[in-house]
């Protein structure tokens, strides 16, 4: 009995020693900032006058609910998410279907679709900023070739966000394509062979075999695209500085603007907390949803006797 406990103690010590570097760095650079963010969100911490900090409880949060610019930032972020997520996922699936073949030379096509993903967002943003230019931009030259007057693009309040969306979809789709491709290659060949025997057409095969088979991986792709889209910052920061007239200001950009540019850490922390809370809530809902679907399937199976 005693020997086991000595051995277990030794195992405990080894385990914690292996964990030690991670615990140190995780505490200093993840736990401490989260706790600080939570605490500062109830204060009026101003980086230029830290000694004057007072606890203001929920004042920051109340102020946020009345902050029209914050509302605008949420609206812009949602607009970005609502368009980018479905369009990018659909495009990625389309590309995956295009390159899901064993013929010679398909490595080059995959590389072509994936190249924008490896190109950094900074490079892509600077490049498209030149493309979208009112004078001498590629897009306006194309438009003038077909007789359409020059557009403002990034300088136009009603177009700027859509310009960023277009670029972001192009830049990111290759990433989701790779995941879809892994899913497509995992679909058992026998299913298609069986369908061929039943003389199913391509569309039937797609809707009845391909789509159901890649459903789990699709929900995964959906989630990572969603999460990535909510964090949009670099594009707006480089291409438009959040403008014109705050039309490309996102939530992350607003955290940066309030917390870093204006140094209002208390207020910025409150936005950060809401932003983080949204992620936590979303993941709770996702898990509940998955459980709910599982329970429903079980229920249905018990009622229908497995059918």
């Amino acid at each position: 009995m005693k020997t086991t406990s000595v051995r277990q103690k030794c195992i405990d010590r080894t385990g914690w020693l292996f964990m030690l570097p991670a615990i140190v760095f995780g505490t200093v650079f993840l736990i401490v900032p989260i706790v600080m963010c939570f605490l500062y969100s109830f204060s009026d911490f101003y980086m230029l006058r830290p000694e004057a900090t007072q606890t203001v409880w929920f004042d920051n949060y109340v102020a946020l609910f009345r902050d029209e610019i914050f509302g605008k930032a949420i609206g812009n972020t949602l607009l970005f998410v609502v368009i980018v997520v479905p369009v990018q996922c659909a495009l990625a699936l389309g590309l995956a279907l295009l390159v899901n073949r064993k013929d010679r030379g398909y490595g080059i096509f995959k590389l072509a679709y994936f190249a924008p993903v490896i190109t950094s967002m900074t490079v892509v943003s600077l490049l498209f900023q030149l493309f979208y230019a009112r004078d001498g931009g590629v897009f306006n030259l194309l438009l003038s070739a077909i007789g359409v007057p020059a557009q403002g693009f990034l300088q136009d309040e009603s177009q700027a966000m859509f310009c960023i969306i277009f670029m972001s979809v192009w830049q990111g789709a290759g990433y989701q394509m790779i995941i879809f491709l892994a899913g497509l290659q995992g679909v058992p060949k026998e299913l298609y062979e069986a369908a061929d025997i039943d003389a199913a057409n391509a569309w039937d095969k797609f809707t009845h075999i391909t789509l159901p088979s890649i459903a789990p991986i699709s929900s995964f792709v959906f989630v990572i695209t969603l999460v990535g889209a909510f964090k949009m910052f670099t594009q707006s920061y480089i291409m438009t500085s959040g403008g014109p007239n705050d039309s490309t200001l996102t939530v992350v950009y607003y955290i940066f603007q309030k917390g870093m540019s204006e140094q209002l850490v208390g207020y910025g922390s409150a936005i950060s907390m809401l932003f983080t809370a949204a992620f936590i809530l979303a993941s709770v809902f996702k898990n509940l949803g998955a459980k709910g679907i599982g329970a429903y399937k079980k229920y249905r199976a018990s009622v229908l006797g497995g059918y």
């Binding site: 195992i11 385990g15 989260i34 992620f279």
Partner: peptide, 27 residues
């Protein structure tokens, strides 16, 4: 390594996966 606290730390890390980096940049 089956050390005491293994499960606890693992669960903690899975939860921490959700926290977005952009949410803690200020602090």
């Amino acid at each position: 390594i089956n050390f005491k606290g293994n499960r606890l730390i693992y669960n903690f890390i899975v939860i921490m996966l959700i926290i977005p980096f952009e949410g803690i940049t200020l602090t």
